[in-house]
């Protein structure tokens, strides 16, 4: 029997994101179940399902942006194009940018919702880091959105 051998180096940023979203050091189980959509999917890298919501499979979409440039005292610089944000604004439901600082394996989240200007986003504030507290905030924000029936969120803690 033979089996294909595949090099899994690369995509370090996405691996860090997946680990961070499933971190459950301070929870009984992970709050999220991320599914990678593959490189060919436009605008979106992950569909992220919320766990712990009986009878419902709520989710958000995320686009990952990685950098090796150290954060400043206030924010992580990321590189997006106007087209990235326009595409996220077109997608129904909550959509977020996840900025990854690869050397330190830190992840930061920023919402793209109704009211977000359709232009490139170049930074994410450091207090939007995906700490345990912010993971819980993110889970709550997404779970509160879906029952509204709206096309897309109009506000976010991570604006």
């Amino acid at each position: 029997m033979t089996s294909e051998l595949r090099d899994v180096t690369g995509f370090r940023g996405e691996k860090i994101v997946e680990l961070r979203l499933t971190d459950y050091k301070t929870f009984p189980e992970p709050l999220f179940r991320p599914a990678h959509l593959g490189e060919k999917w436009p605008a979106i890298d992950y569909l992220v399902e919320l766990t712990s919501i009986p009878g419902r499979r709520l989710y958000f979409f995320a686009q990952v942006k990685s950098t090796t440039i150290a954060p400043s005292s206030r924010s992580l610089r990321i590189s997006t194009k106007k087209k990235d944000i326009e595409r996220l604004l077109q997608i129904p439901g909550p959509t977020y940018l996840l900025g990854v600082h690869e050397p330190s394996e830190r992840v930061f989240v920023r919402s793209v919702h109704i009211g977000t200007p359709a232009r490139a986003i170049t930074s994410i504030p450091l207090h939007y880091e995906l700490t345990a507290g912010n993971l819980k905030q993110l889970h709550g924000e997404v779970s509160r959105f879906w029952p509204t029936g709206h096309h897309k969120p109009t506000v976010s803690r991570f604006a």
Partner: peptide, 27 residues
């Protein structure tokens, strides 16, 4: 989930050692 987290932790660890390659068998 547990298995996937272990995979990711392992792969990131060896990448942090500047591995020339980290290869996984499909099966």
């Amino acid at each position: 989930m547990v298995g996937r987290r272990a995979e990711l932790m392992a792969e990131l660890f060896f990448q942090s050692l500047d591995a020339a390659y980290v290869a996984r068998f499909e099966h």
